[in-house]
Design a protein around this nucleic acid. Sequence first.
DNA 1: GCCCCTAAGTAGTCACTGTCAACAATGTAT
DNA 2: ATACATTGTTGACAGTGACTACTTAGGGGC
Lengths: 221, 221
Amino acid sequence: MQDAPNRPYHHGDLRRAVIETALDMLREEKGWQFTLREVARRAGVSHAAPYKHFPDKAALLAELAMIGFDRLREFLSAAKPTTPKSLRDEITAIARAYVAFGMDNPALYRLMYSAEEGQAVGIHLNERALAVFDILLEVLRRGQAAGSIRKRPIEGQAAAGWGLIHGMTMLAIDGLLVPEKVGSAPLDAALSTLVEGLGSPATLGAPATTSVRGRKTKLSE
Amino acid sequence: MQDAPNRPYHHGDLRRAVIETALDMLREEKGWQFTLREVARRAGVSHAAPYKHFPDKAALLAELAMIGFDRLREFLSAAKPTTPKSLRDEITAIARAYVAFGMDNPALYRLMYSAEEGQAVGIHLNERALAVFDILLEVLRRGQAAGSIRKRPIEGQAAAGWGLIHGMTMLAIDGLLVPEKVGSAPLDAALSTLVEGLGSPATLGAPATTSVRGRKTKLSE
DNA sequence: GCCCCTAAGTAGTCACTGTCAACAATGTAT
DNA sequence: ATACATTGTTGACAGTGACTACTTAGGGGC
């Protein structure tokens, strides 16, 4: 270069710098379609340097996605009220934090759930994702033990919760939950619905009599 | 070309052919990261020909996404049982069809909810998406009128439903609803939870006593 | 103190992409 | 028939991910 001969040949910690720069770009742009060369450029390094630290672009994206899940898990843990008044409070707090995380980091969030397109990276990635899932599982398990949550297969309940929150987050990011169409607090409304669905039979009585039981309802085959 | 002088100079209906070819490629590959040149190649046409019909690649993607929403709406309408035994049956049928559509067309489905990254195309796209939303709205409205659905702001309930189903679909596509972790029929479990949450107080009794009423639960401010 | 080894940079190249401009073939209105 | 708009074509351009070969900084063994 002509203007930076003082820059040391060895960067020091280029790996971290690349990740940091990429995270910055995720924060600035809304998509994750940045180029590796641009990352290198902004890190002040030649276009091939990142390849010394990541085998290819997909590897970097996978790394970013894993960091995203880690941050999300930490964020949710931090948002969990220390002395919740009720299980509903706890679930509500977690759900709000989750959606807030997604809306604050739309590109990162979208990347987290898109990185699987890079095939087999999914293994480790799913581990991180399921670690987030476990937070929800734990709350529900405690709720079942305390009797305030229906005694149903807990994974189904957790899947319902995760699906709901994930779905609402994606819709919110996509701008599909416009206030005029959907009211000002769609998440809370949805959460009420969900929590009431999870609520224990002691208060709610028997499930509706509309005969789900006898039907073969396997989806996954 | 040297081997295809018999191909007529004018294709006839290249616009449709490009769309059709692109849809094929969406069906084959799991991502929507196909190249425009490849589409042109498979359509048997020069690499720049599609530009006579689409200003750029994003325009084609947006068109595909709209087609996807249209197909989804038709598919859901067709799946709606003609003489439903109950509202639960109806909701269940729609939800299953929705998830099935997503799992049968993972790349297209993902594209449908990713195309907004191409900025302002979102207007028309959201129209199509909201047309799907309206199907759900209509069912719920009918349910409220019949008394089998709680009288709550219907947009919140619909958002809950859409969010849940959309989220479960995405998770299913991503392979995050693995059977070992989550049971074999997570959707049905989630649906039970949802429908019980939507269910009218007449059957279900008063909502859980975990004090939702008095609390300010606005999220969006 | 010296030498050499290697990790971590560099530049250069390749095939490929999206996009555009210039040109050719085709159908159509006058 | 002739001018024209449409819809193809070819060829170019810059920018990309990926790979290779070269160069350098810095540390450990002697």
